[in-house]
Amino acid sequence: MEHTISPGYSVEEALICQLARELRNHEVIGVGNNSPIPAAAALLAKSLHAQEASVYILGQCDWPFQGTREFFELMQRGGIDVFFLSGAQIDAYGRINLHVIGDYAKPKVRLPGGAGSGVVYFTCKRILLFKTDHGVKGFPEQLDFTTAGPTSEKGVYHRAGLVGVYTPLGVLKPTGENGRLELGATATGVQPVEVQSRTGFDLGLKRKGAAAIPELAPPTAQELSTLRYEVVHALSRIYPLFVRQHFGRYVVETKRRKEG
């Protein structure tokens, strides 16, 4: 059964607000290519509780680096505190697949590739994984291909720490044995059993007990208002299509208010 988020805000807005809450004041926040939801989250956090944070969004008109090389060099020096990653597949330990679905030599689907995620997962201080959908195929026990992961073999330096995986159904946290992902909280109105039924690996509900899983607070009126009537204007310069599709009514409403 497809879950429909409660009225008053969209699935995308809920995910943006949840990611924004994880960002801290004074952090240096990096957002990569084709990531409108993390970009919106970074801008929302900076507008509300992280006003002294530095936000670098690939594609912004005032990108202060020469291409991406300087940005990745800054990251390798430890200059980026938090970054967002996703994957076509995410496994039980937070490893991601951005390369192929199926056999590597004869894949069912060939994906764009890592796009620097291997470097990011090794060098960025905090990693927030996100996925805009939540289904068994996207969360398998074993990946078809490992593009990057939150840990390294013994003796290999690895700075990054996985904070969690954020989806429309809730958040998975690396609280299990050896950093295995478990259900940390559910989205408003979502039952833990639903999250488990749409995940291809065990989320530790038997160990914790479904009753012990908290529910995330829904977006506040302040978060939604700031997102819809302030953040979208900056976001539209980078992701105009995303803004038209998901926030078009608020852009039109703001324009009418100004003209009136």
Rank of each mutant, 00 (worst) to 15 (best):
G248L: 03
R198S: 06
N178H: 13
E141F: 06
K108L: 15
M75P: 02
P112N: 04
N25T: 13
R110M: 13
H246M: 07
D103I: 09
T175K: 04
T220R: 10
Q222V: 11
G78C: 03
G209M: 14
A160Q: 00
Q89F: 01
E177A: 12
L128M: 12
L169I: 01
I127E: 02
R69D: 09
L44I: 12
H158E: 02
L227F: 05
T254W: 06
V82R: 03
Y121K: 08
K208S: 15
A185C: 10
E52A: 12
E253Y: 03
E12H: 13
T123M: 10
L162T: 00
L48F: 03
I238D: 00
E182S: 10
V119I: 15
L129Q: 04
N25L: 07
T123E: 14
R244Q: 15
K208A: 14
L128N: 05
L43Q: 04
E223Q: 11
L19K: 03
T4E: 14
F145H: 13
Q142A: 11
G114R: 08
H3L: 14
F130K: 02
P140G: 11
Q76Y: 08
V171W: 00
M75S: 07
R256D: 10
P240A: 08
A187V: 03
C17Y: 11
L172V: 03
S35E: 13
P218G: 10
P214Q: 05
P219M: 03
L181D: 02
S86M: 05
Q60R: 13
Y157R: 12
K131L: 04
V82D: 04
T220N: 11
E177T: 14
R228T: 08
V231M: 08
V120W: 00
A14R: 10
S35I: 05
E22T: 08
Y121M: 15
V31S: 04
A42I: 04
R69T: 13
G200T: 06
L44D: 01
E230H: 09
L43I: 02
G118W: 05
K137G: 08
S236M: 07
T146C: 13
V190F: 04
E194S: 06
R95H: 10
L15A: 03
G149M: 12
G200W: 05
I37G: 01
Y56C: 03
P219T: 06
K258H: 14
E223Y: 06
I16N: 06
E230Y: 01
T186P: 07
S54W: 07
F65G: 01
P7T: 08
F145W: 11
T146N: 07
Q191N: 05
L19E: 07
A40M: 09
E12V: 15
A45Q: 02
N25V: 08
D103A: 12
K108D: 08
G79A: 01
A210E: 15
E230N: 09
Q191C: 01
Q60M: 15
Q51D: 09
R249A: 15
H158P: 00
F71A: 02
T188A: 10
A88F: 14
V28E: 05
H233M: 04
I80A: 06
L44Q: 03
K131T: 05
A20E: 10
D81S: 12
N97L: 07
Q196I: 04
E259I: 07
E141Y: 09
G170I: 00
A45P: 00
V31Q: 03
Q191W: 02
G135E: 11
G209E: 09
Y239M: 04
E13R: 14
T199D: 04
G204C: 00
